[in-house]
Simulated assay, not measured.
Amino acid sequence: MHSTEIEIRTGGSAVVADLTREVERFLADVPGGAEDGLLHVWVPHATAGLAVLETGAGSDDDLLAALDELLPRDDRWRHRHGSHGHGRDHVLPAFLPPYATVPVLGGALALGTWQSVCLVDTNIDNAVRRVRFSFLAG
């Protein structure tokens, strides 16, 4: 197994951050080469998740809009520390888990044509996130 952790600055607004290029760089640096196996991505945070989706054509913005409708940033949440409506950020990982696993074939991610590995962060109180990549050889 080969593993590393990166830091992503997400800023002060909700974001869908495409991690695909960082994952590809990670796979290129696997000692002995990453052939067939699994890429596991992990976000060690209680208020962020991962998604595999299309980006750049509006789907990332649609996801954030859907999360705003499903999990409004208002006073309904029992978890009340942080910014207004922050409790919803603690519910997010139940909908977008903090992990994703993608097959790696011949050293390349076996993603569909429009798929990207993305960090989804709606927590405006924490602008820095850690993401761990692990490659498990097959």
Rank of each mutant, 00 (worst) to 15 (best):
Asp68Met: 11
Ala57Arg: 09
Leu92Glu: 02
His40Ser: 15
Thr20Pro: 01
Trp42Leu: 12
Leu109Tyr: 10
Asp29Pro: 11
Leu67Phe: 07
Gly49Met: 07
Ser13Gly: 14
Pro31Val: 09
Pro97Ser: 09
His90Cys: 06
Glu22Cys: 02
Gly138Val: 14
Gly85Val: 01
Pro98Arg: 04
Phe133Asn: 13
Arg9His: 14
Arg130Thr: 15
Ala127Asn: 11
Thr20Asn: 00
Asp61Asn: 09
Asp36Arg: 04
Leu136Asn: 09
Ala100Met: 00
Ala137Pro: 07
Val52Gly: 00
Asp60Glu: 14
Glu7Leu: 15
Ala66Val: 11
Asp61Ser: 06
His2Pro: 11
Ser83His: 09
Val52Arg: 00
Ala108Arg: 15
Thr101Lys: 03
Pro44Glu: 04
Leu38Phe: 11
Val30Glu: 09
Gly11Phe: 13
Thr20Met: 00
Gly112His: 05
Ala14Tyr: 12
Gly33Arg: 06
His40Leu: 15
His2Met: 13
Leu71Lys: 07
Val102Trp: 05
Pro93Trp: 06
Arg129Pro: 14
Ala137Leu: 01
Leu136Pro: 08
Asp29Cys: 13
Gly37Asp: 06
Phe95Gly: 12
Arg9Asp: 13
Val131His: 08
Val30Ser: 09
Pro97Thr: 13
Thr101Asn: 05
Leu67His: 10
Phe135Gly: 10
Thr101Leu: 08
Ala48Asp: 11
Val16Pro: 08
Leu96Ala: 11
Leu109Thr: 06
Leu63Ser: 01
Arg88His: 08
Leu96Asn: 08
Val52Met: 00
Ala28Glu: 06
His2Tyr: 15
Gly12Lys: 11
Asp60Phe: 05
Ala17Gln: 12
Asp18Phe: 02
Gly32Ile: 07
Gln115Ala: 00
Asp36Met: 04
Glu24Arg: 03
Ser59Leu: 02
Asn123Glu: 03
Arg132Gln: 15
His90Pro: 08
Gly37Lys: 05
Arg129Cys: 10
Ala51Cys: 04
Val41Pro: 08
Ala17Gly: 02
His2Gln: 14
Arg78Val: 10
Ala108Lys: 14
Ala108Asn: 12
Thr10Tyr: 02
Thr113Leu: 04
Ser116Phe: 02
Gly12Trp: 10
Ser116Thr: 12
Asp75Val: 00
Gln115Lys: 00
Thr55Ser: 04
Val15Ala: 10
Trp42Ala: 12
Gln115Val: 00
Ala94Phe: 03
Arg76Leu: 05
Leu38Lys: 01
Asp29Arg: 15
Gly49Pro: 12
Leu64Ile: 05
Ala66Asn: 02
Gly37Pro: 03
Leu50Gln: 13
Leu53Tyr: 12
Gly112Gln: 05
Phe135Asp: 09
Gly107Pro: 07
Pro72Met: 00
Asp60Cys: 05
Ala14Trp: 13
Gly87His: 03
Asp89Phe: 01
Glu69Lys: 11
Asp121Asn: 03
Gly49Leu: 11
Trp114Asn: 01
His86Phe: 11
Glu5Pro: 07
Leu71Tyr: 08
Ala108Pro: 06
Arg80Asp: 11
